[in-house]
């Protein structure tokens, strides 16, 4: 009844073990389609919100349509945002003791990290492709040739790949949910700025005081409206921007 492990070179096992773990993470997606839909769909939702709900206030931006600037910004932010999902996965495995079990097994130690990295990159690729298609659907048109567009996609994935290791490192170092919350908060603040910084319009504050004077405890997507709305409003010269848009607190 005792099973005998097969033999092979170190490199062979490093690759096989990585593949086993990559398949583990991809199986998660298959078993949790809702989570995949949320992960892929959330940036699309933000994009639709900014273009159709708030886009009217942006008016003309230098160099053409607001969408031309906004949609690529969304691509970059989505790649940045992947940092926290990598970190969550690493911290969850560490807390459940799965990482310890892997380390006590005669498997290739590198596979734990490589498997994670490959799976996250694949998921990001899917997300990016869907997001590009969504961008095209709402009227974004790349103004460069196909070669340059492919190179840009490659750069985006390279950014994700680089940050993925930061996420793995932080996840392994942190190991507790407190740090995790901090990273999620800061990565969602980055989200809130590119649309305006692209046009060098200063945002009043990355996290403006809400009506009761305290810093917003949840600078979630709504806080993004702070950076975009006043910028557009100023350009329109309209003093009557609804105050609720300037305040980002959860309403």
């Amino acid at each position: 009844m005792t099973a005998i492990p097969t033999t092979g070179s170190r490199l062979h096992w490093a690759l096989t073990d990585s593949l086993t773990l990559t398949r583990r993470y991809l199986a998660h997606l298959r078993l949790q389609p809702v989570q995949l839909a949320v992960q892929v769909g959330f940036p699309i939702l933000i994009m639709l919100m900014f273009v159709f709900l708030l886009g009217g206030m942006m008016g003309a931006v230098p160099g053409g349509d607001y969408r031309q600037a906004f949609v690529p910004g969304m691509f970059v932010m989505t790649m940045l945002f992947g940092l926290s999902s990598t970190m969550i996965a690493v911290v969850t495995d560490t807390q459940r003791g799965i990482t310890d079990r892997f380390r006590s097994m005669p498997m290739a130690p590198s596979a734990v990290l490589v498997g994670r990295a490959v799976a996250d990159l694949l998921i990001s690729m899917i997300g990016l492709v869907v997001l590009v298609l969504a961008g095209l659907a709402i009227g974004w048109r790349p103004d460069a040739g196909p070669g340059a567009v492919l190179a840009a996609v490659g750069l985006l994935l390279l950014l994700r790949f680089a940050l993925l290791w930061v996420g793995i490192y932080l996840g392994l170092r942190a190991g507790n949910p407190g740090t995790l919350a901090a990273v999620q908060t800061s990565s969602s603040r980055w989200r809130s700025s590119p649309a305006s910084s692209r046009h060098r319009t200063p945002c009043p504050s990355s996290s403006p005081p809400s009506r009761n004077g305290t810093r917003s405890p949840r600078p979630r997507p709504l806080s993004a409206s702070c950076s975009a709305a006043p910028a557009g409003a100023r350009r329109h010269g309209s003093p009557t921007t609804p105050s609720s848009w300037r305040c980002s607190g959860p309403h």
Binding site: A3, R96, D100, A111
Partner: peptide
Amino acid sequence: LVGQYAALDEILDGHANLVMFGRLFHLS
């Protein structure tokens, strides 16, 4: 090693967990 918390993949089923760890123990 059986640690203080059940070190299992919560999302996979029982069989898939055993197969995954079996592969990582380098079984065919």
